Amino acid sequence: MNLKTKIISVLIGLSAYSFAQDSSGEFHFPEPETTALSTPLSLWSTQYYIHEFRSGGAIPIVYANGESSGLFADTCDFCTASLEGTAYVTDSLGTITVINFAKSGDSSFVDCRACKKYASSKLKVESWGKTLWTKSEGFGDGVKNYRLIPFRTIAVDKDVIPYGTVIYIPKAKGKIIELPDGEQVTHDGYFFAGDTGGAIKKNHIDIFTGIYSGNPFSDVIKSNEGKTFEAVIVTDATIINALTEMHTK
């Protein structure tokens, strides 16, 4: 059984509701009526995904309450998990634990600049080594008790896009995506503001892609603040309620 199959098997047990969302019908909301659109936005986007690794190395994964998880990471795995916010960690028995960023502690477990790919990063790498975790399930947790949903959840600056907002991105509509269960569907362009991040400021959004680390929205995800696209805030209650229910635990 390959790692992806193991992940799906484990997650079906942990979070059946998350996999109910994998049906193609959940991505077939109709194009919004003009009357169901509100504030126009000019945004730029990055993406984040679930980092997968095997427990090992010398750096402990410690929960926010101070308890040890019994899991360990090397420098790059720990720091990449901190950056992405969620990780699947496989132990020696093949059991997968879902860990989620909880908060930054007072002391550092590791210097993330020691990982070559972050040595010259302009991000606040130093804070990543202080990460404390919480045990999660499914695809991990966002803000306000929302669950993360692949290809639906976005991290936002709440002062620009309030949590719980639904936005419509025309350039995302029609893109073919592969859901965690392997089904390929056509995206309808709607996203839900259910998460945040330390680097997500002003008109920057971060699109969550689950276990998929490729770029499913190449016309949208440019990772360049100068490469903006248009989006609008949706006011259609039917779509807002559906995406809110999908994200609420």
Rank of each mutant, 00 (worst) to 15 (best):
M1R: 10
M1P: 13
N2S: 14
N2Q: 03
L3G: 00
K6L: 15
S9M: 12
S9Y: 08
L11Y: 01
G13F: 05
L14I: 10
A16D: 14
A16E: 15
A20T: 12
Q21Y: 11
Q21E: 14
Q21D: 12
S24N: 04
G25Q: 06
G25V: 07
E26I: 08
E26K: 13
H28C: 08
F29W: 15
P30A: 03
A36C: 09
S42W: 03
S45Q: 07
Q47W: 00
Q47E: 12
Y48S: 06
Y48A: 04
I50W: 08
I50M: 01
I50P: 06
H51W: 15
F53D: 09
F53K: 07
S55T: 15
G57F: 14
I59D: 02
P60A: 04
V62S: 11
V62A: 11
N65E: 00
S68F: 01
L71M: 08
A73N: 08
C76H: 06
D77W: 01
C79D: 04
C79I: 06
G85M: 11
T86Y: 00
T86M: 00
T86E: 07
V89G: 09
D91H: 02
L93E: 10
L93K: 12
T95D: 12
I96C: 05
K103A: 10
S108P: 12
D111K: 04
S120M: 07
S120Q: 10
K122R: 07
L123S: 13
K124Q: 10
V125A: 04
G129M: 06
G129E: 05
G129A: 02
T131H: 02
T131A: 11
L132S: 05
T134N: 09
T134G: 10
T134C: 03
D141H: 14
D141P: 03
K144E: 14
N145W: 02
Y146C: 08
R147Q: 12
P150N: 09
T153K: 06
D159T: 13
P162H: 07
Y163G: 03
I167D: 01
Y168D: 01
Y168N: 02
G174C: 05
G174S: 02
P180M: 04
D181S: 11
G182V: 07
E183Y: 00
E183G: 00
E183Q: 10
Q184G: 02
A193E: 02
D195S: 10
G197K: 11
G198K: 05
A199K: 10
A199Y: 11
I200Q: 08
N203S: 03
N203T: 07
I205W: 11
G210F: 08
I211Q: 09
I211A: 07
I211C: 04
Y212K: 01
G214Q: 08
G214Y: 06
P216K: 05
S218N: 11
K222C: 00
F229T: 05
E230N: 12
A231E: 07
V232H: 09
D236K: 01
A237N: 13
I240A: 00
I240M: 02
N241K: 15
A242R: 03
T244W: 06
E245N: 14
M246E: 15
K249N: 13
K249C: 02
